[in-house]
Amino acid sequence: MLKELDNLLGQADTAAIALFEIHTATLKTALGPVSETLGQQISLFDFEAARKTLHTRLSP
């Protein structure tokens, strides 16, 4: 799901919004507090910033 979200964000596809909304609970578990920032960025259609936030959290 994270890879799919990353792909959608990279394509500036508004389907990222629906994907985030459907999987909010899972994303909160996986990403912790970063999921709040990610959700705000996605809801504001700031897909570039959301993708950077996602990558920051997924990087080791």
Rank of each mutant, 00 (worst) to 15 (best):
T26Y: 10
L2R: 02
F20L: 15
R57C: 13
L58Q: 10
L31T: 02
F20N: 00
N7H: 07
K3F: 02
H23R: 13
L8D: 03
T26A: 10
P33M: 08
T53E: 08
A49D: 05
E4A: 06
E21Q: 13
L38C: 00
T29F: 03
A30E: 06
A50Y: 03
E4I: 03
L31G: 03
G32Q: 01
Q11R: 12
A18V: 15
P33R: 14
R51N: 12
D13M: 06
P33V: 14
Q40C: 04
N7F: 01
G32R: 03
L44R: 11
E48S: 08
E4C: 02
G32A: 01
F20Y: 15
I42P: 01
Q40V: 06
A25C: 07
S35H: 09
S43K: 13
Q40I: 06
F45S: 08
G39R: 02
K52Y: 15
H23Y: 13
T26K: 15
A30K: 00
S43I: 04
Q40F: 05
S59N: 09
T53N: 07
T29N: 04
Q11E: 13
L9G: 01
E21V: 00
T53G: 10
P33F: 06
T56W: 08
L19F: 09
T53A: 11
P60A: 12
L38R: 02
L58D: 06
D46Y: 08
A12N: 09
A15V: 04
E21M: 05
F47W: 13
L58N: 13
T37S: 08
T26W: 08
G10F: 02
F20T: 03
L31H: 00
I42M: 03
A12D: 14
A49K: 07
L38P: 00
L9V: 06
Q11K: 07
K28M: 10
L19R: 10
E21C: 02
L58C: 09
L38D: 00
L19N: 14
L2G: 04
L2K: 03
T56D: 14
E48Q: 15
E4R: 01
Q11W: 08
T14C: 10
L58P: 11
E36A: 07
T53V: 11
D6Y: 02
H55G: 00
Q41S: 14
A49H: 04
P60Q: 11
V34I: 07
